[in-house]
C-alpha cells in the first residue's frame, strides 16, 4: 500500500489512476466543506471541480513534509472564497441558503427529514460570517486543530480562537431559537 507522497509521485510520473486513489479519502470532506460554505450542492460541486483542477495542476508544488489533507483543504477553502467573491455572494449568501432547494434524489419522507436537518443547520450557521463559518466547519466539523485551521486559512491561531468563540456563541444563540426552552431542562 503506497503512502500519499508515493501516490503524488506516481501521478507526476504519469500514472493518472493514482490521482483517484489519492483523493478518495477527501472526496466527501471537500464536497461537504464547499456545500456548507456555498449553501448549495450544485455550486459546491462546481467549487470541487475547480479545486480538483487546481490540485492536479499544482501537484508538483506539494512538499513531502507538508500534510496532504491540509493542502487539499487549503485549496478547497481558497477555491470556495474565489467562487463566492466572483459571484459576489457574500452579501446574499444567507438568503440563497434559505431559498435554494437541494434535490438529493431521496424518497419524500427522507427528503422531509433531510430538509428539517438542513433548515436547522442553516438556522445555526446563517448568522456566521464566512470566516467564522470556515473556522467553525474546519475545527468542529472536520476536526482540524486550531493550528491546522490557522494554516489552512492563512491566519493566526489567535484569530482562529476569536472567530471560533464568536461562531460558537452565535450558534448557541441560534440554537435557542430551535429549542426555545431552558437548557437546564434539556439536560434532565
Amino acid at each position: 500500500m503506497k503512502n500519499e507522497y508515493e501516490l503524488v509521485v506516481d501521478v507526476l510520473e504519469g500514472n493518472q489512476g493514482s490521482f483517484e486513489i489519492l483523493l478518495q479519502p477527501y472526496r466527501k470532506g471537500i464536497l461537504n466543506m464547499a456545500y456548507r460554505m456555498t449553501g448549495n450542492l450544485e455550486e459546491a460541486k462546481e467549487v470541487c471541480q475547480e479545486t480538483l483542477i487546481k490540485i492536479y495542476r499544482h501537484l508538483d508544488k506539494f512538499k513531502k513534509e507538508k500534510s496532504l489533507k491540509n493542502w487539499i483543504y487549503t485549496i478547497t477553502m481558497n477555491s470556495t472564497y474565489d467562487y463566492l467573491r466572483e459571484k459576489k455572494k457574500y452579501k446574499d449568501l444567507v438568503e440563497k441558503q434559505k431559498s435554494l432547494p437541494v434535490d438529493t434524489g431521496l424518497d419524500p419522507e427522507k427528503k422531509l427529514v433531510n430538509k428539517e436537518i438542513k433548515e436547522k443547520i442553516d438556522t445555526c450557521l446563517q448568522t456566521l460570517s464566512p470566516k467564522e463559518k470556515s473556522v467553525f466547519l474546519l475545527r468542529d466539523g472536520e476536526g482540524f486543530s486550531v493550528k491546522e485551521t490557522s494554516k489552512i486559512l492563512g491566519c493566526s491561531s489567535m484569530s482562529v480562537r476569536t472567530h471560533l468563540s464568536r461562531a460558537r456563541q452565535k450558534i448557541r444563540t441560534q440554537f435557542e431559537k430551535i429549542y426555545p426552552f431552558r437548557y437546564g431542562e434539556v439536560k434532565q
Binding site: 461537504n32 443547520i121 445555526c124 466547519l137 460558537r168 450558534i171 448557541r172 437548557y183 437546564g184
Partner: peptide, 25 residues
C-alpha cells in the same frame, strides 16, 4: 453551569446535524 451546558448541547447537536446532512458524490 447552565450556560456551559447550553454551549455543549448546541455544539453537539450542530455536529450531529452536520454529520446527518453530509453529502457524497
Amino acid at each position: 453551569r447552565r450556560e456551559y451546558d447550553a454551549y455543549v448541547l448546541s455544539l453537539e447537536k450542530t455536529k450531529e446535524w452536520l454529520k446527518e446532512d453530509s453529502k457524497d458524490w
